[in-house]
Design a protein around this nucleic acid. Sequence first.
DNA 1: GTCTATAGACGGATAGAC
DNA 2: GTCTATCCGTCTATAGAC
Lengths: 199, 199
Amino acid sequence: MSDDSKSSRDRLVDAMESLLWERGYADTSPKDVLKRAQVGQGSMYHFFSGKHELAVEAIRQNVRRAFGGHELLEGTGSPMDRVERCLRYPRQGVRGCRVGRMTQDPQVFDDPDMIGLIAGAFEGQLSLWEKVIRQAVDARELPAGINPSDLARTISAVIQGGYVLARAAHAQEPMDRAIEGLIGLLEAVRIDRVPDFPR
Amino acid sequence: MSDDSKSSRDRLVDAMESLLWERGYADTSPKDVLKRAQVGQGSMYHFFSGKHELAVEAIRQNVRRAFGGHELLEGTGSPMDRVERCLRYPRQGVRGCRVGRMTQDPQVFDDPDMIGLIAGAFEGQLSLWEKVIRQAVDARELPAGINPSDLARTISAVIQGGYVLARAAHAQEPMDRAIEGLIGLLEAVRIDRVPDFPR
DNA sequence: GTCTATAGACGGATAGAC
DNA sequence: GTCTATCCGTCTATAGAC
C-alpha cells in the first residue's frame, strides 16, 4: 500500500484511497494523507492541485478496485448459481463499503466529479446483476413475473444495507443474515427446485 | 425546528439533529449549530459540555423521531399487508436515512455512546419486522421455511441500501425500485394468492 | 442564562529554496 | 521533485462580563 517501490504520486493516491474508506472525505486532511504516504507536503501539491483533485483520483482507483471484478457473476454455473455465489462472496461488513460509504459524505454528494464516479460504479454493477437475473428468467430458473431491473436494485440494496447494519451492530452477523434472508426468498421462488416447505 | 417558542436548549438539540442528518458529525461544527439555532456561543457550553454531549442528545432525539412510529407495522390488516404498507411508506431516498447515515461517520462509529443509540434503534426496528414476519408465517401467508429473523434483516437492509442507491444516483427511483423488487419476491412466495405467472 | 473576547491547535494552500 | 517556512481561516473550548 505504502510500498517503497511505488512513486510518490502512487503512494499519495493509495493513502488517500484508504483514508477515504476509513474516515471519509470531510474528516481526512492533507496532513493525514502525507503522513500515511510518507511523503512531504510539497510533493502533493506538485502532483495535484489540492485535496479535491487527489480525492477524485483516489475514488477513481477505489471504484476500479471494488467493482472491478466481474468474474463471479460471469463465470461458470447456472445464472442463479452465479447470483448466489456472488451474494455469498465474503464481505467485511463492519468496514463498510468503500464505494457506498462515499454517498453519505455531503462534500462528495455535492461534487459532480466525485459523485459521478460513484454513480457510474453503481450503474455498472446494477447492469451486471440485471443481466444475470434476466438470464435466470430466460433459463426459467426464476418466474417470468420477476422484474430483473428491480430485483437487481434489491440485491444491490441488500448488500449496501447489510454494510450499514453490520456497522451499526459492530458485527458481521446482521449483514450475513440479511443476505441469507434474500437467498431464502430467491430459493423460494426458484422454479427448478422442489421447495423444502409445503405451499 | 428553530421555533422561537422553544428554549435555547431545545433549539440547540434541534439544530444539531438536522445538521447531523445533513452533514454528519465530523463536518458539523459548534459554530454551525449556533448559527442554525440562533443562539450565542455561551448558551451551548452552558447546557452541554461540548459538541459530543450535544450530539448524543441530538442522536437520542433523532432516533426517537425516525424509528418511533410503530403504527404502520402494528396497525390493521393482515401481517403481509402491513409489511407491504410499511415498505411502501414514502421515504426521501436522496436525503438519506438520518439513523443509518451515522454509521458511516468514524467518530460516531468509534464512540460507544453514539453508536450504542444507533445500534439500539436498529435492534428495535428489526424486532418489529421480525415479529410481523413471524405473524405472517403463523398465518400461513409466508412459507414455513422462511426465517423471520433473517428476513427482517433483509428488509431493513433493502431500505438502508435503497437510501445509498438513491444518493449515489441523486434520484429517488433506484430506492423505489429496490423496494418494489423486494415486494415482488415477497408476493411470489406468498402462499395465500395465486401467482400471476406460471410456475 | 446569554453575550463577547480570546486561546491554541489544525485545516488547506502558497512561496520559494534546493 | 521534494523540502521547510509561512499564511489565513476555522475548530473546539474557555474566560469573564452582564
